[in-house]
Design a protein around this nucleic acid. Structure first.
Lengths: 254, 254
DNA sequence: CCGGTCTACTGGTCTGACCAGTAGACTGTG
DNA sequence: CACAGTCTACTGGTCAGACCAGTAGACCGG
């Protein structure tokens, strides 16, 4: 009996549905590069012959693949469903869902963003090319110009600046994850800041912080850039994080 | 004309499919808490009456919701599709897809992992509970014991150790992203290390590095833990990263 | 060269059918 | 009374066939 409990445990068995095996095959073909973005799958009626299943099975598989961003169907297109370029849309959607269902706290999101942006600036400070530095300067100028155009414009310019930094790291994952968590956080907070009475003062402060970070990046001082970036995020978002969760953010500051 | 170019741009219009509106409604009900995890939706045949659409439409909607982890259908269950507890499964899946599909170089993956694990250890050093520290000690013991059981066992114990650290940060995103990128990197490298002539020496070194990191965590020294963790990853993986890309990893070390 | 029309497809949706699986009520038995 | 088996009324998974609206590309007339 001890034998059974320790070694011979069985896992619950679940039937493999037909549409799942269709998904598997198409997914594999896309991931292996046998199907490249832009290319087209055969039409549903053709697929149902190849897979030897009914059309509804094919359609259910395509719906799932579509919801995962791998494929897109356009009614009437004689070329069939199109393989989509890799995108972080699905990632962003599921993260937003988790955040909305409060399975992800704002504290976690901000903490993760501090971590990412901090390291991104650290890398950017050391790896940036002169052209990339110029782009960052330009992005900061746009932010400065947006000061008088309202919060929405400013926030957009803010995001653009961070994206420029992320790009300068040369790391795709940093860019993608950064963009996703940035969008989610901004989406959660935006309203509150926009309606703050002193939103202009907040923008002013934020602008100064970004300028300081950029200075560090210009000097190639990675550690300073990272620290300033994290501090800047903390100052910007801390008040929206419940007090008892704020402690978790501090270890990233000093 | 300038007017048209700057202001009056129209966005492409896309028809809203019936199944999409079904998804919207159910999704909203789940996110608003009107449908709680564990509860059941009406049967497909009942839903098709309520939404006034055909069953195939209902099914396509349910397939998407199921693929997003919101709902699960079991054939034959008279209670209908069940609302699932919130899970990060979908996030993890889309993340893995991106990591696998987007032609990421090993350098990028290792860099991202250095970044994540570094910060994870930094946070863990400051936020860990005594129980979590004990878990890490235990995980290290398992690694030590696995030294003689071959590389596969050791690698598994290695991963388990990192997972313990990630858990101690208390941050879901760190855990998920860490797990994903860890799996991808390990999957890419495993073979090469396993067949290395001096694989035992590598394991020995790795074990020592982990012990050092754990010392720093035990001392609550976040910066040291982070630095050691990053250095350890670098030493472990650098030789598999093409030389000309290795430079991108250095800014994270000092 | 270009706006229309035509055509042969496409995907989106509905209907109706069959099967295998499941829960819960029912049954007969000890 | 407890309980293994059976029954029943559903469920979801799958298929076949139909219809409509939408699209690309060929074709046509100016």
């Amino acid at each position: 009996m001890a034998n059974l409990d320790q070694q011979l445990r069985f896992a619950p068995v679940s039937p493999v549905r037909a549409y799942e095996r269709v998904i598997e095959q198409i997914e594999a073909a896309v991931l292996d590069g046998r199907l490249r973005p832009g290319e087209h799958l055969p039409s549903e009626r053709e697929l149902m012959v190849q897979f030897d299943v009914g059309r509804s099975t094919i359609r259910e598989a395509l719906r799932v693949l579509q919801s995962n961003g791998l494929v897109r169907s356009r009614a009437g297109d004689p070329r069939g469903p199109q393989v989509q370029p890799m995108s972080s849309g699905a990632l962003e959607k599921s993260m937003t869902m988790l955040a909305r269902a409060s399975a992800l706290s704002l504290a976690e999101l901000v903490q993760f963003r501090m971590l990412l942006e901090g390291s991104a600036n650290q890398l950017a400070a050391r790896l940036r090319t002169p052209e990339q530095l110029a782009e960052m300067e330009a992005a900061l100028d746009v932010m400065r110009a947006a000061l008088d155009k309202g919060f929405a414009e400013f926030s957009q310019a803010d995001v653009a600046f961070h994206e420029t930094v992320a790009k300068a790291t040369g790391n795709t994952l940093i860019q993608i994850c950064g963009a996703v968590v940035r969008d989610v956080v901004v989406g959660l907070i935006e309203d509150k800041i926009a309606h703050a009475s002193d939103s202009r003062a907040l923008m002013q402060t934020s602008l100064q912080h970004h300028a300081n970070v950029l200075d560090a990046v210009r000097d190639g001082d990675g550690d300073r850039a990272a620290t300033l970036a994290r501090q800047s995020l903390y100052d910007y978002y801390a008040e929206y994080v419940p007090e008892d969760e704020r402690a978790a953010l501090l270890p990233l500051l000093y």
